[in-house]
Structure formats: C-alpha cells, structure tokens
C-alpha cells in the first residue's frame, strides 16, 4: 500500500469512527435531555395541576 492510499484509508477510518461515535453521542444525549425535560414537566404538572 503506498502512502497516498494509506492516507485515504486513514481518513475513511477517521470519518467512519467519527460518524459512529457522533451518532451515538447525539442519540444518547438527546434521549437523556428529552427524559429530563419530560420528567420535570410531569413533576411541575403534578405540583400545579396543569
């Protein structure tokens, strides 16, 4: 494998890794925040009878 091909495959590797981890992070923390907001809303609704 020459240097050029290696560089390209490194970049492909980095991009795939970034996509996989990036998507996991976004999904995990969006779910986390949605759950937090939902539970706060429910508690407030219970407290004030909305």
């Amino acid at each position: 494998m020459n240097d050029e091909t290696k560089k390209d495959s490194d970049l492909a590797d980095l991009q795939t890794a970034a996509t996989a981890v990036g998507v996991t992070i976004v999904v995990f923390f969006v779910v986390y925040w949605a759950a937090q907001i939902q539970s706060t809303y429910e508690l407030l609704a219970m407290a004030y009878g909305w």
Binding site: S9, D13, A20, V21
Partner: peptide
C-alpha cells in the same frame, strides 16, 4: 482491520 482500526476500536469502546 488495518484500515478500520480506529472505527473498530471506538465502536467496541462505545
């Protein structure tokens, strides 16, 4: 394996 080492490592870690 060689070309996707970082991907495989990170997915395994996750």
């Amino acid at each position: 394996w060689g070309s996707y080492r970082r991907t495989i490592t990170s997915v395994a870690l996750v």
